[in-house]
Design a protein around this nucleic acid. Structure first.
Length: 301
DNA sequence: AGAATTACCTGGCAGC
DNA sequence: TGCTGCCAGGTAATTC
């Protein structure tokens, strides 16, 4: 499921295929994803040139040459696919310059198609989303930070803004479990169920533990909070690195960019041995706020 | 106000 | 075999 590292990987994979190209047409194959598309979406995007791609939290950002930014969220099943067009040679069926590409099996969930004009010829970037939890919107670049999706987002886990002192301020006196506090995008942007479990495991902290217990009575971060921050940074950096290394293979096979399987230390490892050296515990699965949490009660306190 | 719960959606899989 | 029902998860809306 796309969390921050997966979205970052998608951004990096799409950048060479999209940046600098002209969107000859934005094709919407239905009126909505999770939410309706913005008014006149296709008309406003068609004809524009893509200036650059970016990311904030789990949102993919496509900067257009008219000052607008197209916002795309992959939900949990969204993915992009790159299809290079070919000009059919010497065939009556082929209109010169027209896009020809083998149809994919799963095309009933191809909801949005970016028809691009690249230097090498026609190209399509196809957004596929079986569960339609994803959504798209568009906003002027200057208004991006004030957009409801972004207004309340906390800092990126990869940036300098996230530190023990910052989290101490956010967690102070909070009885909320660490799992919920880390999942809250207002505290840190971009963490999802998987990487919260992984970060807590790395920091040897229990997901059930109250967030406020990592802060001293005077509001200063305890050492464990510093370890948690380091664990979050590390797990995200490692996942991005793993995504980058799998990116090449991923595009080569079928052009898709999206959710790919990493190897996890605790997530989805119920009843299996804890991987903390010398721990000897067993990974448990509990439900918090309606979501699965995986952790080791032996080494996570 | 802030926290917890539910809705949204469909593919995949366990169980009968 | 074919059906039912449940589970996955990010965010918004709703409820507490």
């Amino acid at each position: 499921m796309p969390e921050l590292p997966e979205v970052e990987t998608v951004k990096r994979g799409l950048t060479p295929a999209m940046e600098g190209t002209r969107i000859t047409r934005l094709e919407l194959r239905r009126g909505d994803l999770r939410f309706p598309f913005p008014d006149a979406f296709a008309d406003r995007v068609s004809g524009r040139t893509i200036v650059s791609l970016g990311r904030r939290a789990k949102y993919l950002l496509v900067d257009l040459d008219d000052g607008n930014t197209l916002i795309s969220h992959l939900g949990m099943s969204g993915s992009f696919r790159i299809e290079e067009g070919r000009i059919e040679e010497g065939a009556a069926s082929g209109v010169p310059g027209e896009f020809h590409h083998a149809r994919s099996k799963d095309e009933k969930h191809d909801h949005v198609v970016f028809h691009l004009q690249a230097a090498s010829g026609p190209r399509r970037v196809v957004y596929n989303d079986p569960r339609r939890f994803g959504f798209m919107d568009m906003v002027g670049r200057a208004d991006l930070a004030a957009h409801p999706f972004f207004r309340d987002l906390g800092p990126e886990p990869t940036g300098n803004e996230l530190g023990a002192a910052y989290l101490a301020e956010r967690f102070r006196d909070k009885a909320q479990p660490l799992k919920s506090a880390l999942l809250d995008q207002k505290n840190i942007a971009g963490l999802g169920n998987i990487y919260v479990c992984e970060a807590l495991w790395r920091a040897h902290l229990s997901p059930i533990r109250a967030a406020g217990t990592l802060v001293t009575a005077t509001g200063r971060p305890k050492a464990q909070l510093g370890l948690l921050v380091a664990s979050i940074r590390d797990v995200i950096a490692d996942a991005i690195a793993a995504g980058g290394s799998s990116l090449r293979d991923h595009i080569q096979t079928d052009g898709s960019l999206g959710y790919f399987q990493h190897s996890f230390s605790v997530y989805d490892r119920e009843s299996q041995a804890c991987r903390t050296p010398g721990c000897g515990g067993t990974v448990a699965r509990i439900v918090q706020a309606g979501r699965s949490t995986f952790y080791c009660a032996t080494c996570q306190k």
